[in-house]
Simulated assay, not measured.
Amino acid sequence: MIRPSRFENAIQKLYTAFHNNTLNPECCKQCAVGNILDNTDSWKHLSDQHGSTQLNYVGRVHQTLGRRFNGYTPLELLNIEAVFLKACGFQIPLHHKNSKPENPTDSDVLFNGLEAVVMHLCALDGVENVMDYTAMFKLKIPLPNKGQHLYSTCHS
């Protein structure tokens, strides 16, 4: 299956950030969107609060003009970041009074965020979920004396 280049680039950047410990939900340059946009924080000017899905004036202008940042519209970027922050356990938009995970850079917290973002990116581009591991657990079990096969899927 051919995947859009924006999707492939975003997945690669997020994967690299996760494995290099440079994924940080509280930093505009190291969060999901910050990494997708090459560790820049210019995207934060599209909204008034980190984690908000509401475009501000600048964001609406860019959205209306059809601007794309590494392939993504301003609204898509804000939604990607919101998905990431929620999956990491943050109450959005980020604010010192809102709840957040005890250790935001814990690898389990970050993996939850990464998994949610990858699923969201797949949905945006109509790509089969690359994080779906259920196919790995499908077993082809031969039935005795029948020449048929029983397909089984592991369910929890």
Rank of each mutant, 00 (worst) to 15 (best):
C27H: 13
C31F: 01
A32K: 07
V33N: 04
L37C: 01
N39W: 12
T40L: 03
T40W: 03
W43D: 12
L46H: 09
S47D: 03
S47P: 02
D48N: 15
D48K: 13
D48F: 04
S52G: 11
T53N: 01
T53G: 02
L55W: 09
G59Y: 02
V61M: 04
H62A: 13
T64P: 00
L65I: 09
L65H: 12
R67V: 01
R68S: 11
R68E: 12
F69R: 09
F69M: 10
G71H: 15
L78E: 05
E81H: 03
E81N: 09
A82M: 01
V83E: 10
V83D: 08
V83Y: 05
L85G: 03
L85I: 06
L85T: 08
L85R: 13
P93D: 05
P93A: 05
L94F: 00
H95M: 08
H96Q: 10
H96S: 03
H96T: 11
N98L: 01
S99M: 02
K100W: 00
P101S: 07
E102D: 11
P104W: 09
D106S: 12
L110M: 07
G113N: 08
M119Q: 13
H120L: 05
C122R: 00
A123S: 06
D125C: 03
N129Q: 10
D132A: 14
A135Y: 10
K138E: 15
L139N: 13
P142I: 03
P142F: 08
L150T: 09
Y151Q: 14
S152P: 00
